[in-house]
Every structure is written in structure tokens, then in C-alpha cells.
Design a protein around this nucleic acid. Structure first.
Length: 295
DNA sequence: AAGGTCACCTGAAGGC
DNA sequence: TGCCTTCAGGTGACCT
């Protein structure tokens, strides 16, 4: 569920409340929550005990807590419904509590991973020389990263034979963008989701990236987008960017630019929201006919 | 071999 | 009331 802005809100909260603290115990209540830790739940818990956490880092939708004393990090992905909460030990367990991490300064609260759908999870991994967990080395930098390579992104788009929204959701091309902010950025750019990436000019790519950065920055300042209680910050509070969405979830509502009724289309087992007037479909949605006589 | 589909989960909401 | 279907913010294994 959470995309870059929501994960960044969580990263900041975890950094404030958990960085610098030493782990006293790890309790895995659901094995699926640590399935990416291939050595298993016992190993995960045992290796974290006694470790001090460093400042939280993030790339795209992944966040990780480096261990202060060795080149490993606790990698966190929230999936569709994951939450990291800082709770007083006395707080009753949440219904979908999956992992509990306590610290030696217990009075400052414990770190809880709560996840209804169990698409998210925690795992411990070695890091590369630049501090990135090795298992996410294939993820591209995200658009808020100062080292994001805009020229390489444009080249990759031109080379790809796919459509623009698919490309935006491909974390190996650009990370951190999900269904909501893809639709928002495409609406701002007046681009249809089925536009072939090969047709984008360098200025159009630059404009699109500018809108992605703008909408994500604005969402971050609003504390993220919360449709329900499934996305909250580490203190359990919702973000309020939903009221600022221009496209996502606005089927049949007037386009904020031209007043035309917004549309929703089934797309890759989910939905795409767009304005049929501002975001015209590409002229040929289908493949152009082959030249006759060729094999 | 790049591109596209589907499975992985739980729960809420709406139709009948 | 309750059963059934559909849908949900993500990822990656597995097809072609």
C-alpha cells in the first residue's frame, strides 16, 4: 500500500524513536513476516538480540535499520498493509501484530510490525560498501534521491517497449512510485497511462519527473495518503493527502482542470484513474499492421 | 530475454 | 442475515 511518501514518513518516525537503541528481544509471531530472512525466524531473533540500531535509511519503498556494529541491516518492506509502530509495552497486542522488538531501555516503548495481509516483512541482510542491503541492489534510485540519474531513466524509457505507467511501477527503472502517485503524476503531466514509453521526448520525461517529485513532496508534507487505518505513521496517525488527490479514487468526479468526469479503467488487476479529455489515449492502442509481404 | 500475468494474503464493501 | 464476488496502496516467480 504505502509508496515513497508514506515509507519516508515511517522512516523518519523509526529514526526518531528507535535509532541508537539496543535490542533486548525479538518475538516473531507470524513466520511469514520474516520469510525473506531465509535462515528463519529463530535465526532472525537470535542475531538481532543485543544489537544497537543506527539511523534509518530508505530507497524507494524499502527502508532499513543498519546495525551499528556490523555491516548488516534490518530491511523492512511494508507491502500493502504493513505498519511499524512504537508502542508502550503495556499496549494490548494489535490483531495483526507479526513481530515485536523490545529494547534495553524498555520505558521508551517497543517497536511493532503489524501487517494485515502479510505482504510485507522484516529480514536481516549484509550491506554493500555503500551501505545498501545487498538484496535490494537491483532497485533503481528513487526520484527524490539527489543521485537519481534522469538521463539514464529517459534512455531506458526510450529503449523499453512498454507503456508509461508500467514503466513507472517498474522498481528497477525508478523506485518508490506506486499506483496512486503514478496516476497523480500522469494526470499532472496530461499523459495517458497506455502511452508507449518510446514516444516520450526528453522534455516530456523531465516534466513527468518534475510532477512525480512535486506530488510526492507535497504528500510527504501532508503525512502521506491514508484511505483507511491501514497506513499510519509510527504513532498510529493517518496522513491527510487523500483530500489533495487529483486522479486516484476520483471516478465520475469532475476533473480539477477541465471538469470532465474522471474515469476508472481496470488495469493490471487494479485500477487506473484518468481524465478522458486531458489524458488522451495514444492514437494506436494496438500494434500497427505489419508491412505485407514480409515474414 | 524483456514484457506481461498471476499468486501470495486478509478484510471490507456491495450485490443479491 | 448471510453468502458470494470484487477490490485494495506491492512484489516477484513464472510464463511466453
Amino acid at each position: 500500500m504505502p509508496e515513497l511518501p508514506e515509507v519516508e514518513v515511517v522512516r523518519r518516525g523509526v529514526e526518531r524513536w528507535a535509532a541508537g537503541r539496543t535490542i533486548a528481544s525479538v518475538d516473531v509471531l507470524h513466520p511469514r513476516a520474516v520469510r525473506r530472512h531465509t535462515a528463519g525466524a529463530q535465526d532472525f531473533a537470535a542475531r538481532l538480540r543485543g544489537q544497537r540500531l543506527g539511523p534509518a535509511l530508505r530507497r524507494g519503498k524499502y527502508l532499513w535499520l543498519p546495525l551499528a556494529d556490523e555491516a548488516h541491516a534490518v530491511l523492512v518492506h511494508l507491502g500493502m498493509s504493513g505498519q511499524l509502530l512504537i508502542q508502550p509495552a503495556a499496549t494490548p497486542d494489535e490483531r495483526h501484530l507479526r513481530v515485536r522488538i523490545t529494547f534495553d531501555d524498555a520505558e521508551a516503548g517497543e517497536l511493532r510490525f503489524v501487517d494485515q495481509r502479510t505482504f510485507g516483512g522484516l529480514s536481516l541482510h549484509p550491506c554493500t560498501a555503500d551501505g545498501l542491503p545487498e538484496v535490494i541492489a537491483h532497485i533503481a534510485r528513487d526520484p527524490l534521491d539527489p543521485e537519481f540519474d534522469q538521463a539514464a531513466f529517459h534512455t531506458a524509457l526510450r529503449r523499453r517497449r512498454t507503456t508509461i505507467k508500467r514503466a513507472l511501477l517498474d522498481q528497477s527503472l525508478i523506485s518508490g512510485v506506486g499506483n496512486i502517485y503514478a496516476d497523480e503524476a500522469l494526470w499532472r503531466s496530461r499523459l495517458h497511462y497506455d502511452r508507449p514509453t518510446g514516444t516520450l521526448t526528453r522534455p516530456r520525461t523531465a516534466e513527468l519527473l518534475g510532477h512525480i517529485r512535486d506530488v510526492m513532496t507535497a504528500a510527504l508534507h501532508a503525512g502521506g495518503t491514508s484511505f483507511d487505518s491501514l497506513y499510519v505513521n509510527v504513532n498510529g496517525e493517518s496522513g491527510y493527502f487523500e483530500r489533495s488527490l487529483d486522479a486516484y479514487g476520483r471516478e465520475d468526479e469532475p476533473c480539477r482542470r477541465c471538469g470532465t468526469a474522471m474515469r476508472r479503467r481496470p488495469w493490471m488487476n487494479r485500477s487506473s484513474y484518468f481524465c478522458p479529455r486531458c489524458q488522451r489515449p495514444p492514437r494506436t492502442a494496438t500494434t500497427p499492421p505489419l508491412t505485407p509481404g514480409r515474414t
